[in-house]
Amino acid sequence: MTTEKVIGAAAFGRTGAERPFLTGERSMAETLLGHAALNIQLYRLFDDLQQMSVDVVRAMVAAIDAKDNYTGNHSERVAQWSRLMGQELGMSSQDLQMLEWGARLHDVGKIGTRESVLGKAGPLTPEEFEHIKQHPVTSYEVLKPIHRLARVLPGVRHHHEHWNGSGYPDGLAGEDIPLFARVIQTADVFDALTSSRSYRRAYSVSEALRIMSGEAGGCLDPRLVQIWVQIVERMLAQRPGLFAHIPPDPGPATSSAGHGGDGP
């Protein structure tokens, strides 16, 4: 099959008949093959465009991470933590791939968030908090036109919903929150807690897990928190390098209480 270049081949034959193909039959076969070649090229073009769209979105995520000195590589780490949880939950390889994509792209909507809000040194005002709360929906709208990312959309839109229904943007609760969203949220919270902020130091692994355990059944899915604690404890023994960027436990004099600014 060819248009300007060969993209495939097809063979035709007869069974139990010796006569050659008629001119009309050959013309019909050539026409069908021409249409097939065109369809293959169009599919390849569509696939290339979809991949270009994904690459553009990934570049946007990298730009967002680079814009905030306190959350560099945040999206990549959330993707890594999410994949670990997905594996523990027994997800298929296809689901793991989609979960990882959703986790990597969950904050792309922050491209529309004011830099003065993203990098603010201190608690947000009510207006600023409402502004940054728009980013899950913006992320959803940015990714919606990319067909191959359709399955990640619920996880992206709902990763700030709370188990008790107090989250945003749609106030979902419990099992009504998509599993992808609950996994991404758990990973997101862990990485936020163990990353430095302009207004506080990064929490250690044990501090972060303690805070998350306190939020189980409130903000976070209690089962996923339990699973994440088990994963971290196992990884600390098997692959401690995964958490090398996280500071050790502080002494009693430097330990901080609370984590009020880590919502968005």
Score class of each variant (00 low, 15 high):
residue 27 S to G: 05
residue 52 M to P: 07
residue 22 L to P: 01
residue 56 V to H: 13
residue 32 L to S: 10
residue 51 Q to D: 05
residue 67 K to I: 07
residue 84 L to I: 14
residue 68 D to K: 00
residue 21 F to A: 07
residue 26 R to M: 10
residue 64 I to V: 10
residue 80 Q to F: 13
residue 69 N to E: 14
residue 88 E to Q: 14
residue 68 D to G: 08
residue 80 Q to I: 10
residue 53 S to F: 07
residue 86 G to Q: 11
residue 78 V to E: 04
residue 50 Q to M: 12
residue 103 A to P: 03
residue 96 L to P: 04
residue 91 M to D: 01
residue 30 E to D: 15
residue 87 Q to Y: 03
residue 26 R to P: 00
residue 83 R to D: 15
residue 69 N to K: 09
residue 107 D to C: 00
residue 110 K to Q: 08
residue 108 V to S: 12
residue 42 L to I: 15
residue 106 H to I: 07
residue 108 V to E: 02
residue 95 D to C: 12
residue 70 Y to H: 07
residue 26 R to H: 04
residue 25 E to I: 09
residue 73 N to Y: 07
residue 20 P to V: 06
residue 110 K to R: 15
residue 68 D to P: 06
residue 29 A to L: 13
residue 30 E to S: 03
residue 22 L to V: 09
residue 59 A to R: 11
residue 82 S to G: 03
residue 105 L to H: 03
residue 34 G to V: 13
residue 40 I to N: 00
residue 46 F to M: 14
residue 28 M to C: 15
residue 42 L to H: 15
residue 42 L to Q: 08
residue 90 G to T: 14
residue 86 G to F: 00
residue 81 W to G: 11
residue 50 Q to R: 08
residue 53 S to V: 14
residue 34 G to S: 04
residue 50 Q to F: 09
residue 67 K to C: 09
residue 63 A to D: 10
residue 21 F to Y: 06
residue 112 G to K: 09
residue 40 I to P: 01
residue 83 R to W: 05
residue 59 A to L: 11
residue 85 M to E: 00
residue 72 G to E: 15
residue 81 W to S: 06
residue 56 V to R: 13
residue 23 T to V: 04
residue 53 S to W: 12
residue 64 I to Q: 03
residue 40 I to F: 04
residue 99 L to S: 01
residue 46 F to T: 12
residue 96 L to Y: 03
residue 96 L to W: 02
residue 55 D to G: 06
residue 42 L to V: 11
residue 109 G to Q: 06
residue 44 R to V: 11
residue 81 W to D: 08
residue 101 W to H: 03
residue 107 D to G: 01
residue 102 G to V: 06
residue 100 E to C: 03
residue 52 M to K: 04
residue 46 F to Q: 15
residue 28 M to H: 14
residue 86 G to P: 01
residue 98 M to W: 02
residue 106 H to K: 08
residue 107 D to K: 10
residue 84 L to R: 05
residue 107 D to P: 00
residue 35 H to E: 00
residue 49 L to R: 15
residue 83 R to C: 13
residue 97 Q to M: 12
residue 38 L to I: 08
residue 92 S to N: 04
residue 107 D to N: 02
residue 79 A to G: 05
residue 31 T to N: 09
residue 80 Q to K: 15
residue 78 V to F: 01
residue 105 L to Y: 11
residue 54 V to S: 11
residue 79 A to H: 00
residue 22 L to M: 13
residue 60 M to P: 00
residue 21 F to T: 04
residue 44 R to Y: 06
residue 50 Q to P: 05
residue 74 H to E: 07
residue 60 M to V: 15
residue 113 T to Q: 12
residue 81 W to A: 06
residue 63 A to R: 03
residue 96 L to K: 05
residue 57 V to Y: 01
residue 57 V to G: 04
residue 47 D to T: 14
residue 44 R to D: 14
residue 77 R to W: 12
residue 86 G to D: 02
residue 111 I to N: 05
residue 19 R to T: 09
residue 53 S to D: 07
residue 53 S to E: 02
residue 39 N to E: 06
